[in-house]
Design a protein around this nucleic acid. Structure first.
Lengths: 168, 168
DNA sequence: GTGGTTACGTCAGTCATGTTGACATATATG
DNA sequence: CATATATGTCAACATGACTGACGTAACCAC
């Protein structure tokens, strides 16, 4: 009983600590997506469109199957969203050179503009949080976040140099 | 800034750094929710049910309007999910004492069990990430995550002691 | 105690985004 | 040539959001 008040019971603290982590994830994600969502609404798009635009912008020439792997949705789900983006000329598809079955995806100039508009809000939010927290905290943030990602997905994030890099 | 460390193109690195932050949020959240989602499926529930169960468990006796404020959804959306949870006896409602218009929400024993089952996976994931990253990294994680939350929502998270606590 | 506000519920319709399953086409590969 | 792969498409369905309108009970101020 009095452990609660005094904060001596380590099990309680651990529980509280972990629940705070859970909630930070929830609230940060909720607020992180709210701004772009509002903008997307004006275009008749949703969050799914943002994700597609984002990752196509990030990986120009990405294949459909690689995009599916990132998003972890079915091709039918992607199809609707991607179809709209292609129809409305935010994204173009061109056949692969080595493998002509592939439809490599790229943003059009219009697509790049929308991507910038949407992501800018998120970038600014992260930049502010990073700036206020300081470089050391950012390093810790990265470590913990990476630990939350499934083992299989961590390859996407390059290991950071421990100290200043000397050569190339 | 820490751009100095790398001594290459600071603007590019900053861009890259921020995009990594964006992606960490996406992938961490994606993987963080995947496990409970799978369990929820067995109950015929979805992620929305988890959120309700979680926050009712976290704040026993919470009012409907406070819950709405946390979730940032409409009462009609909540109604369906909450209705199911009440019908299936995971949650009970009792009228407020001071204000009898309120329907204060609480988990039943069944509800507590399901909450535990669901949240346990997330707690374990966070615990692992915290353990692997170390106490200092956790502190940084918290700082950055809190900075990502809208100013208005930060009150929920108590400010932490600046350093190691020496006595009371 | 009447009247306005608040807390909550409900009916009805719509939309975005996910799912499964089946089938089609073009290309690559052995 | 046969089979596997990359992608697309049609159809049906579930979840969880939304808006708008309306209803009821309880609180509160005058």
């Amino acid at each position: 009983m009095s452990d609660i008040k005094t904060g001596i019971n380590p099990l309680f603290l651990r529980e509280e600590e972990l629940r705070q982590g859970i909630e930070l994830l929830f609230f940060a994600y909720r607020d992180f997506t709210a701004e772009p969502d509002a903008i997307l609404g004006e275009y008749g798009f949703g969050r799914a469109h943002h994700r597609v635009i984002y990752f196509v912008g990030r990986h120009p020439g990405i294949t459909v199957s690689d995009l599916l792997e990132i998003l972890r949705i079915t091709k039918q789900s992607l199809s609707r969203v991607l179809g709209q983006l292609v129809t409305e000329k935010f994204i173009v598809q061109r056949p692969g050179v080595r493998d002509r079955r592939q439809r490599l995806l790229e943003l059009t100039e219009k697509g790049v503009e929308l991507e910038r508009l949407l992501t800018e809000r998120q970038r600014a939010r992260i930049a502010r949080a990073y700036r206020e927290a300081g470089a050391e905290a950012v390093e810790g943030f990265r470590k913990v976040m990476l630990g939350l990602v499934d083992e299989a997905g961590r390859g996407r994030f390059p290991a950071r140099a421990a100290g200043p890099r000397r050569g190339a």
